[in-house]
Each structure stands twice: as C-alpha cells, then as structure tokens.
Amino acid sequence: MKKKKKTDAPLTPAVLHILLALSTEERHGYGIMKRVELESQGKVRMGPGTLYGSLGRMMAAGLIRESDKKVDPAMDDERRIYFTLTGFGRKALTAELDRYRDVVAVAQDKHLTPSAFADGI
C-alpha cells in the first residue's frame, strides 16, 4: 500500500529555501544556489554537496522533479538539468509558510520584537 504523503511535516531550512527559490520558476543547480543566497541576503550558502544532497532527497519525497534539460542563455552552451516544484511541493511550501505566519502572529500578540530581549543578552 502506498503511503499518503503528509504536507504538514516541518521542513528543514535548506529544503524551505530551495522550495522558495523554485516557487516562481524552474531553475538549475547554480540558479537555485544563487537565488537562495539572494533571498536569504547571504545568510544561507550551500555548496554543491549540500545542494544536490537536498535536491535528491526532495525528489525522493516528491517535493520537486527534474524538468527538461536545456541551455541557460545567460550561462554557456552546456545543457543543464532544471528542477521544478511538484503540486505536493507547492502544498508543503504553503503549509510551512502558514506555520511561520502563525508563529509570527503569536509573537505579535505578545508584542515581541526582534529587539525585545536585547537587554537580557
């Protein structure tokens, strides 16, 4: 019997960032890496080992899939594998973002700001 996939399982930071990078368009490995770096303002940097390890596990989990091989006009003439979100990946990303929104809402209810504990540090 095939197990039903759960979209409500929390995602690791690397997986979340990769899903976010792929949420707007399909990208190749280097493109994902640069997008993650840009969106995290340089806080999240992945080497090829981490990136492709995560991509492999995400493909196995059904979050993303390989799309066609094609040439990136902005790069060189090498054909590259592009990765794209699956429907399940999109649902998992939406569920994770909802969780983050809930957490932020709780923090706002408590009037907690990033500097709220600055005195205690």
């Binding site: 490995g29 280097y30 090829p48 990136l51 492709y52 492999g56 590259r80």
Partner: peptide, 17 residues
C-alpha cells in the same frame, strides 16, 4: 546511482562557482 544522476550537474555547478 547518485553519481549517474547528479555527477554532471554537480560538476557544472562547481564550474559555474
């Protein structure tokens, strides 16, 4: 299996970097 799937893209990404 991993090498056959990701070996070439990893080498490409390394070259890009």
């Amino acid at each position: 299996p991993y090498r056959e799937r990701f070996g070439k893209p990893m080498a490409q990404t390394f070259t890009d970097l």
